[in-house]
Design a protein around this nucleic acid. Structure first.
Lengths: 213, 213
DNA sequence: TTGCAATTCAAACAGATGTTTGATACACTT
DNA sequence: AAGTGTATCAAACATCTGTTTGAATTGCAA
């Protein structure tokens, strides 16, 4: 695209290798348009590389998708919220951290990509489910059991986990819809904190009520 | 496709007009694959009509999508749950009816189509938001206010509405994911009833706690 | 420099997609 | 029977898709 590709550092952006730039822009485009909607040409345009690079460095669109999916950055979500000692505070921390990642994912395409997987099964769904989502469910189930004091059946615990997950993910999943219904609503840091607090209080009351406390 | 298109009533299926068959199969395919993923040829194949019929009876893919979106069958959701008198029972009825539509939508592609819209903005999102989702939010907000006895700010009410919506829609949105994490889980009528009851109790406790009751 | 392998590139390829076309069949009126 | 407007169809069209190709460029060692 540059008329004279002399060796100038220029805008100092895109310093990484072609492969890394491809992964970065793939996360963006896949997150925005899904696996099917994303196009190789758009990914390469943003990465400023030739379309053939996808098949050279990876082996096609699907392999690039898998490469864009490394889950480590999201896995510390559990440890992050485990500073507190009692289960109630740890639940509050988990909801807060989860919500922040969900909503800030609007800027960081990485978690956005994972959240989209949650709704739209793709070839990578199985590994995401077992490696990322299932541990979150187990962790949350432990917190719910502790808060309920062992007074809930496994089914009830599972539904409580779903309730907490559902409340949080709704803020991301229905963002476009809610933006139209509540145009004035803006999810800045303060709004996210307030939302996390309310979800926590709401959920604690729900769990305790179900546990008969 | 038939080698000899003589005038036989044959399998007596697809008795409707070409236009109606197109809308029916469009609902199926759009619900399964989304707006972008769905193809005219697949829609026409299932409707057993020529591909040109889409541009003859409608004006292209997008117009067919709009036509497949008539919202009336879902709008009686509010009235359906308004038999009870007190707000608590009406909330219970709403959650139950909403959940049934969400989960049975797996078989009826019509609501499946709407739910997909909620996650994946398409050209039809604006009309869906204002004509279908917004009234549901308003109705639910009224119930929450009544239950809380006017002791909640507008923001808190909105977040309670989001919590109820979020819990319910999670069961549909994350169905594929949860099927992998809990392979034994089956959403038959009994499981749906139990889930609706637990979401209701969970939410009532949350609303009351936030209202300071 | 020379040689060699890795990398990048423009161009082309093969297939799928939404749309259009022109012909044909049908139902109904005059 | 001739006319008329609707409906259907196979085929073609233009565009976009992921992928491949073969040449050009680069980086680096001998």
């Amino acid at each position: 695209m540059n008329p004279s590709p002399v060796n100038q550092p220029a805008h100092t952006e895109l310093p990484e290798s072609t492969r890394d730039r491809l992964i970065a822009s793939a996360r963006e485009v896949f997150a925005e348009s899904g696996f099917k909607g994303a196009t190789i040409r758009e990914i390469c345009r943003r990465a400023e590389v030739n379309v053939a690079a996808v098949n050279y460095h990876f082996n096609g669109k699907e392999a690039l998708f898998m490469a864009a999916l490394e889950l480590e950055p999201l896995e510390n979500l559990i440890g992050q919220a485990d500073a507190a000692t009692n289960a109630e505070d740890r639940l509050a921390g988990f909801i807060r951290e989860f919500l922040i990642r969900l909503m800030e994912g609007y800027c960081t395409p990485h978690s956005q990509l994972i959240m989209r997987e949650l709704l739209e099964p793709s070839p990578a769904l199985d590994s995401i489910a077992s490696e990322f989502i299932a541990p979150l469910h187990e962790h949350l189930a432990g917190l719910v059991r502790e808060i309920a004091g062992g007074r809930l059946t496994d089914d009830a615990v599972r539904r409580c986990v779903f309730s907490v997950f559902g409340q949080c993910s709704y803020y991301r999943n229905s963002r476009e819809m809610n933006r139209r219904i509540y145009p004035a609503l803006d999810y800045d840091a303060a709004e996210i904190e307030a939302t996390a607090l309310q979800i926590t209080e709401f959920s604690l009351a729900g769990i305790r009520k179900l546990a008969g406390k």
